[in-house]
Simulated assay, not measured.
Amino acid sequence: MTAHTIRRIPLSVALPAPFRGGVVAIGNFDGVHRGHQAVLDCALDKARALGVPALVLTFEPHPRQLFRPDVPLFRITPAPMRARLLGAMGFGAVVEQPFDRDFSCLPAEEFVARILVADLGIAHVVTGYDFHFGKDRQGTPQFLIEAGERLGFGVSRVEAFCDEGADAVSSSRIRSLLAEGDVAAAAGLLGYRYTVEAEIAHGQKLGRTLGFPTANMALPEGTDLAHGIYAVRLRRENGALHDGVASFGRRPTVTENGAPLLETYLFDFSGDLYGETACVSFFGFLRGEEKFDGLDALVARMRQDEAEARALLAGVRPLSPLDAAIAFAG
């Protein structure tokens, strides 16, 4: 599996002709975790069998942001990262349906007739076992099956995917693990290393004066990753990979109540990364964020963090083809 460019298409514009008549997987797919991948793999298999395009239909913003705007939502994979993962899996396009009050009131029958049939011209649709849609969640997988029989498209319903402990894999479980800093356990549920994407920006450049220049990235608001130090791998826009150690947090030794920032020190690298959009994959949690008594103590601990991260990263292997496409050389 190799990553390739995927088309992100807002459903406010007409779907390009080459994507009509395809197999469509429907869902929010926040995390694109192993449970989601069961649905997505089913859609890819069906598209190959029918010889038609494979697409994903999802919703932007996440419906919870509309219905509960006062509750911050930690999105495991914001739309650009989700699209990157879907492209790596082999989808040609992700159709992003604008989700607003008017759309939330759309009756289930109209969703099928207008969105699936008229706008997308689907041949087949794939959903999870618990997918609901339309006003008051009227639409169910069984509703889709009956509509498909009338309107001429097929439907596949994928049952819940459970991990090795027989527990259902869910985005909420993964969010909880990431909030604890347990990126290794989260990777087991995701099927790949948790990865963030952002532009590298100028910082205070204190790390440079200490001998640890960092690539600084502001993560999306609501990112509830535990503050601390991680062994990571950064992928540049040109595909080059660099191992490193990263701090995510408020930098208590050098600033008072700073905004959360991801600062990544790359091993054996010198160069200018400013302005690039990079991906950082998290392989292991080394320690929590600490406040040190001065810069000398901070530097000594950073040297220890570097040694531990190098040792951890020396033995890593891909968890899956998707992990290989995102966090390893292709």
Rank of each mutant, 00 (worst) to 15 (best):
T2D: 04
A3N: 07
H4G: 14
A14Q: 15
L15Q: 13
A17T: 12
P18A: 08
G22D: 08
G22H: 05
I26C: 12
G27W: 14
N28S: 06
G31M: 11
H33R: 11
H33Y: 14
R34N: 02
H36D: 13
H36N: 10
L40Y: 13
A49Y: 09
V52Q: 13
V56Q: 11
T58P: 00
T58F: 02
P69W: 05
I76S: 07
T77H: 01
T77Q: 08
M81F: 03
M81H: 10
R82F: 01
G87L: 04
G87A: 01
G92E: 15
Q97K: 10
D102L: 14
L106A: 13
V112F: 12
L116R: 15
V117S: 11
V117F: 03
L120K: 10
H124L: 08
V125I: 09
V126I: 05
T127A: 04
H132F: 01
K135L: 03
R137F: 00
A147W: 03
G154D: 12
V155W: 03
S156E: 13
R157I: 06
F161M: 07
V169R: 06
S170A: 15
S172D: 14
R175P: 03
S176Q: 12
L189D: 09
Y194R: 15
V196Y: 13
A198V: 00
E199L: 04
I200K: 15
L210I: 14
G228M: 05
A231E: 08
V232Q: 15
L241E: 02
G244A: 08
G249T: 04
P252S: 14
T255M: 12
E256H: 10
N257H: 07
L262F: 04
G271A: 04
D272C: 14
L273G: 08
T277I: 13
A278F: 09
C279V: 12
L295T: 15
L295N: 10
V299W: 09
R301D: 02
R303L: 02
E308Y: 13
A311M: 07
P318Y: 11
I326N: 00
G330W: 04
